[in-house]
Simulated assay, not measured.
Amino acid sequence: MNKKISFYFGRVLILGRTNSGKSTLLNKLIGKNISITSHKINTTYFNINGIYNYDNYQIEYIDSPGFINKNNIISNLLDNKKIDVILLVLDRNKWNNIEENIIKIINNISISTIIIINKIDKIYNKTILLPYINFLKTKIFFTNLVMISAKKKLYVNDIHHFIFKILPKKKHFFPKNYITNQSKELIISEIIRKYIMKYIHNELPYIIKIKVEPFIKTSKIFIKNINILLYVNKIIHKKILIGKNAKIIKLIISKSQNSIEKFLNRKIILKIWIKLK
């Protein structure tokens, strides 16, 4: 008689300060770039969910917004979703009121927490880690602690195995081939915003509205056009986006098209129009 297979499913919330590497970690855990990364603050505006499947295990990872430092953001995430595991991502040995605020909430709930010390490739004096880990033990109770470099994908896969041990027995929530429950249009808009952030060095990227017009596959390997509308408030914003001799907008289109092709796994023609609101 065949033994009945048990299935495991759980939601994992990724918390941490801005630029601690949460989005990079999510991308590496999923194996696809679904959350944009940038050195600028507050890059992620909303929750990005990524789905990881391995045999009879399924994990829904939730990347929290860049402005997670606000307590009500964490509380709302915990109230609105059934979270089974928390990944608290720490940027090396940084610790201040941001981390203090996050652990105050974690310490008041009974959710298994795994500490992730990220960017260990940048810690040249590894002797500081043991005192730091001892310090963490005085601050928060955690199930496991993993030291990684998300950018270089060092020890990232270990995280999955620690989570597997915690997941409840439950039917899988998503089809096996799911990678994210975000729409393709949303991810494309996020890719474009990433490159606007990269090449526009002021507050402008935060006020631009991006609209991705509906597109269709023309073949298995080609999408004819993806049309993007960028809405700005002022003529000067439009001039900044275009740049001298259209240098900046051409760069944004070129880099975005390359990344979108990798995401969609097909060739595209990307067209961008800049309009006043």
Rank of each mutant, 00 (worst) to 15 (best):
residue 154 L to C: 04
residue 214 P to H: 04
residue 126 K to Q: 09
residue 216 I to G: 04
residue 233 N to K: 15
residue 159 I to T: 06
residue 197 M to P: 03
residue 219 S to M: 05
residue 231 Y to D: 02
residue 206 Y to I: 00
residue 131 P to Q: 06
residue 128 I to F: 07
residue 218 T to P: 09
residue 183 S to T: 14
residue 208 I to L: 10
residue 230 L to T: 05
residue 240 I to K: 13
residue 190 E to R: 09
residue 135 F to Q: 07
residue 155 Y to I: 04
residue 131 P to T: 12
residue 147 M to H: 00
residue 197 M to V: 05
residue 219 S to F: 11
residue 155 Y to L: 03
residue 189 S to T: 08
residue 171 K to L: 12
residue 190 E to N: 14
residue 196 I to T: 00
residue 176 K to R: 11
residue 178 Y to M: 14
residue 196 I to L: 11
residue 141 F to K: 15
residue 143 T to L: 05
residue 238 K to C: 01
residue 138 T to H: 05
residue 153 K to D: 12
residue 228 I to T: 02
residue 218 T to R: 14
residue 234 K to V: 07
residue 167 L to F: 10
residue 216 I to T: 13
residue 124 Y to P: 02
residue 159 I to L: 08
residue 161 H to N: 10
residue 125 N to D: 13
residue 128 I to L: 06
residue 155 Y to F: 07
residue 230 L to H: 00
residue 190 E to M: 03
residue 181 N to E: 15
residue 192 I to L: 14
residue 233 N to R: 13
residue 217 K to R: 15
residue 236 I to R: 15
residue 197 M to E: 13
residue 150 A to M: 08
residue 170 K to E: 14
residue 131 P to W: 05
residue 161 H to C: 00
residue 227 N to P: 11
residue 149 S to P: 02
residue 237 H to S: 10
residue 161 H to F: 15
residue 188 I to M: 02
residue 140 I to N: 01
residue 165 K to F: 01
residue 171 K to W: 04
residue 140 I to T: 07
residue 225 N to Y: 15
residue 239 K to F: 02
residue 144 N to W: 00
residue 227 N to C: 09
residue 189 S to A: 08
residue 174 F to H: 03
residue 147 M to I: 13
residue 208 I to Q: 06
residue 164 F to T: 02
residue 227 N to V: 06
residue 132 Y to R: 02
residue 153 K to G: 04
residue 218 T to S: 12
residue 177 N to D: 08
residue 135 F to C: 03
residue 172 H to F: 03
residue 213 E to N: 12
residue 169 K to I: 14
residue 238 K to N: 01
residue 209 K to W: 00
residue 141 F to D: 15
residue 179 I to R: 01
residue 236 I to E: 14
residue 236 I to F: 09
residue 164 F to W: 06
residue 187 I to D: 01
residue 126 K to M: 11
residue 215 F to W: 09
residue 186 L to T: 14
residue 159 I to G: 01
residue 191 I to Y: 02
residue 193 R to S: 05
residue 193 R to H: 07
residue 240 I to R: 13
residue 217 K to V: 00
residue 219 S to C: 08
residue 201 H to Y: 09
residue 207 I to H: 10
residue 223 I to N: 03
residue 189 S to L: 04
residue 167 L to E: 05
residue 207 I to M: 10
residue 161 H to Y: 15
residue 236 I to N: 15
residue 179 I to S: 07
residue 136 L to K: 04
residue 228 I to F: 01
residue 143 T to I: 10
residue 177 N to I: 06
residue 188 I to R: 11
residue 121 D to N: 09
residue 231 Y to W: 02
residue 198 K to A: 10
residue 227 N to Y: 10
residue 235 I to Y: 12
residue 170 K to H: 12
residue 135 F to Y: 08
residue 164 F to C: 04
residue 168 P to D: 07
residue 197 M to T: 05
residue 182 Q to S: 13
residue 235 I to L: 12
residue 196 I to E: 00
residue 171 K to G: 03
residue 134 N to M: 01
residue 179 I to W: 01
residue 133 I to P: 03
residue 126 K to D: 08
residue 155 Y to M: 05
residue 235 I to M: 11
residue 229 L to P: 06
residue 155 Y to D: 07
residue 135 F to D: 06
residue 225 N to I: 12
residue 173 F to Y: 15
